[in-house]
Structure formats: C-alpha cells, structure tokens
Design a protein around this nucleic acid. Structure first.
Lengths: 142, 142
DNA sequence: ATTTATATTATAATCATTCTAAACTGTTGA
DNA sequence: TCAACAGTTTAGAATGATTATAATATAAAT
C-alpha cells in the first residue's frame, strides 16, 4: 500500500503533475496487493462506483496512456476488441481464460524462458510476449 | 497455386456458398507462394486495385470473418489498433517489426517450443502465441 | 422453373477512442 | 503571496473502424 506522497513523487519524477485526478487513478490502480488487469471501461466503472467526484472519460484515457508511456502500465492486447492494461510491468506472460475473460499473470514457474534461436531481421528485440489461451473442455480447440 | 474448382469445394465443404465475391477473395488470399499477412484495409485496397468489379466493404468484413471462423485464417492482434489476418493457419509464432509494421512468420528454427510447466487454471489450452517485437537500435527498449 | 435460403450491397448506425477549445489548476519565481 | 504560464481537465463534438439493416441479387433445392 503506497502513500499519497509516494504517488506525488512518482508522478513528479516522470514529469507528470500530480493532479487530483491522477492521484485518484493511482490509488485505484496501484494501491493493491495483487496486480490489476483492467480495461478502460473497468477502470471508469471502478472510479464512478468508488468516488463521488467523477473523472471525465477523456482524462481516464489520457492518464492511462500517460502512465503507459511512462512505463507504469503495460498494454496486453487479447483481440481486436479487447485491450487490457496491467499494473505488473515486469517481464512476464499471460494466461487468458476465454470463459471468464480474465487475464492471469504467469511467472517463470508456469512458462519457461522462450528460446529465440534466430532473430531473422537482425534487429533488436524490444519485447517477447506469450499469450496462452485456455478454455473449458467443451470449447473448440484451435 | 490452387484452381477455382478447389476453392469451390473448399467453400462448399465448410457450408459456405461459393459466390463470385468469395472466390475472388480466395484468389487474393490463397493463390500465393508465401503466407499473406494483411489487415482488412490491405485486402480491400488489393481487391480494388486488381479487379474492376468492386466488392462491398461489408462483404469483405463478412468473408474474412467467415474464413476465420471456418479456420482458413488466423487473427493476429498486434495492438489495440492493429489487427492482422494470416493465411498460415499452422501453429507458429511471429516477429513484428515495429519500424516497418510487418509481421513475419517464425518456424521452429527461430523460436523453440514454449514450455508450459503448469496450467494454473486446470483448463484446456486452446492456443499458445508468441509475439516478438523487434526494432532498430535507436528505438526504445521495453 | 419456381421456391427458398443465403449472400451482397449501399447506407445508416454504433461505439470506442481522440480531438477541441474553453475553463481550471499546479508550479514557478518575482 | 500572487501573478503568469504551462500543463490539465472537461463536456461535447468529431472520427473512424466495424457492424447492422433491409432491399436486391444469387445459389441451391425441389
């Protein structure tokens, strides 16, 4: 559990003014024991349910993108119509439960290191992401 | 290079009527030596450039989704605003070149088998996808 | 051939996201 | 302390990709 003053310096250090709205969003996102996987919609709902002062949707978009650009959030794209943000910014992979639409973080106990034998382009690798989709037995296999 | 009659039976076998438009789209998508990675927009452009009779955008969307549902195309989501389709429907992974926005298929020579040690949910794995983003050295690492 | 189910089409509708520009707020430094 | 400025928030409009509609056309079945 982080304190408000910690969020303030975190924001200041990355050139973001610690506004009322951003601090509120920090609270929702980072004052947690476990990592948080959310869509913009989830976050907007969470805020409107838990605070009486509303935050404009535009601000929620701006803030999430600013936090992503500053490296405080990672974006995980599941499909063209489902994009999640993840408060866990360490290198890690995901399970995606197609029945519940829930993302689950993996650690090295669950998915081993991906062995890239050959980077055919000769360029620098900027990220490696593994997404394991799971579903109950009755679902189609693919 | 497949023949028209082969597309016709392919479509019939999966319960899709072999219409003029679908056969044209088959030609564009599957009459190739290499696999084809495309966005809906790429495909629409390709069709309008290479044929004089136009195909409605709605039909292009419908057909691509039908082909995906029947397993003739795979969807690869790169980010919330970039979704590609892939004519290579075998299990394989991708490099994504952030400089050129090109997807590149990997084979087992480039990325080894992903070792899933533990499927935490106890559900069936429906797919495993690896996306390796690459960029030139001047890009930010992540 | 006739009928029926399916597909195509242009256009409208939808919906998530981004833009706009006016009002507001945090920060700086006199 | 308090102006002045840059950065931020906001409601609402604009955008743009995708999907829905419903009329027309086509393929398949009888």
């Amino acid at each position: 559990m982080l304190k408000n003053s910690e969020f303030i310096s975190k924001l200041r250090n990355s050139g973001l003014r610690p506004t009322k709205q951003r601090l509120k969003i920090c609270e929702v996102l980072f004052n947690r024991d476990k990592t948080f996987h959310f869509t913009i919609n989830d976050l907007a709902k969470n805020i409107s349910e838990n605070f009486n002062e509303k935050i404009s949707l535009a601000t929620i978009y701006n803030t999430v993108h600013a936090f992503k650009d500053k490296g405080y959030l990672k974006e995980i794209t599941i499909s063209s119509d489902k994009s999640y943000f993840d408060t866990n910014i360490t290198k890690h992979h995901h399970f995606y439960d197609e029945d519940t639409n829930l993302l689950i973080d993996c650690n090295d106990n669950e998915i081993g290191k991906v062995n890239i034998k050959n980077n055919i382009t000769g360029k620098k690798i900027s990220s490696v992401e593994v997404l394991v989709r799971v579903a109950s037995d009755t679902q189609n296999q693919n």
